[in-house]
Design a protein around this nucleic acid. Structure first.
Lengths: 212, 212
DNA sequence: AAGTGTGAAAAGTTTCACAGCG
DNA sequence: CGCTGTGAAACTTTTCACACTT
């Protein structure tokens, strides 16, 4: 069997891709601490995984280490950055500037990690503008034009659950390929679109199972 | 081998427990639609999984279906609720009422799912109180007393990343058993404590890998 | 000596397929 | 007949252990 899937990407396990982001963060930290080489044992400890897993994860997309020495921090960081598709700044839109949506906009956590949220959309842009948001809040009717014109590929979805499916249909039709979904609903999309669900109540519920 | 782990819990795969929460939501919806029986095929479709997986998941903790008919919606919902430890209202505290923390408090998404956030803690309670939060915002110094007095087991952690580890140490020492962590850091805790990480930037980064 | 890269084993999870019950 | 419950098969992911390189 060959090592790429139908989309031409290297066949890296999904979970390994999540870990790549964690490794990248750890590398940035190490780099700012002036280190230029790191062993799998050290990096793995920082990332909370086992050394063998780290080595296997990195091996999915190449050989970057020096035996007896470790990995070059700088190079490895660039490689991961490129693998994740972060070499270019990705514009992101946010749809649904209600309670949670506007909270996320004020939070600026995405900007800190190098994503630019270039516009928000809401059924009532007037009301949302009042909430101390400093990017344009546009009416939902403008979604399609905006996405096409700016070639936006990523969207954060914070609309009420009953609108989530119909909005995501419009996003996908307009060209969105990745959706970060905060609604507690299983969205139906074509296989070429990736949906990541962040379900805050579900995470708390999951914790509730583990406390005695 | 027997079917319980060292803590005496049924040995249900972690991923199955997440799905339990999803099933529970779907059941509530079905119930409000007046249905009182549901087949694995129907419930599975609503939950976005395969019928066999749903049946296997439910079988981990008992036999609730009637062959030829399906599952009783009401009973199944109660069973899942109990399995998840949701029969009692769990008090939750939130630590770090800054940008994201105060946003989550105003969002009220946890309350909607039946969790009560009974207090928030912040290094500067004064500043946080101004942000339109309607639960007590207490100084971080009060953490230990409050947790002990109210027997709080769950905490939402939204402090800046550099304080996360030391705060979680204090939480755990005071009796917290489950932490919903929003800081981009791998927290070190004893095995009897469960940490769920919600890393918003990481989720976006993961999406970024899948767009072409 | 130190530490990577990697086949092979182990563990975990999902899917299949069908026996068996209502 | 319809649909659950479940062993067994298939698949995925993690861990091990060690040959190999600097």
């Amino acid at each position: 069997m060959d090592s790429t899937d139908k989309s031409g990407k290297l066949d890296i396990p999904k979970k390994a891709i999540y870990r790549l982001s964690i490794y990248y963060r750890c590398l940035q930290k190490l780099n700012s601490n002036g280190l230029d080489t790191v062993s799998s044992t050290t990096l793995a400890r920082a990332a909370g995984v086992k050394p063998a897993q780290l080595r296997k994860d990195l091996a999915y997309f190449g050989q970057f280490g020096t035996r007896g020495l470790g990995y070059p921090v700088d190079l490895l960081a660039s490689i991961i950055r490129e693998t994740l598709g972060r070499e270019r700044l990705q514009p992101v839109i946010l749809v649904g500037a209600g309670n949670l949506g506007s909270a996320l906009l004020r939070y600026h956590g995405f900007e800190k990690e190098g994503f630019e949220v270039i516009a928000a959309f809401d059924a009532d842009p007037q009301a949302s503008r009042a909430r101390g948001i400093n990017i344009p809040v546009l009416p939902v009717a403008d979604l399609e034009n905006f996405i096409t014109e700016k070639s936006v590929k990523l969207a954060i979805l914070c609309v009420p659950v009953e609108f989530a499916q119909s909005i995501v249909n419009r996003l996908v039709a307009a060209g969105i390929q990745g959706v970060l979904n905060f609604s507690p609903i299983v969205l139906e999309v074509t296989p070429d679109v990736t949906v990541n669900n962040v379900d805050l109540a579900l995470e708390l519920e999951h914790l509730s199972y583990f406390i005695r």
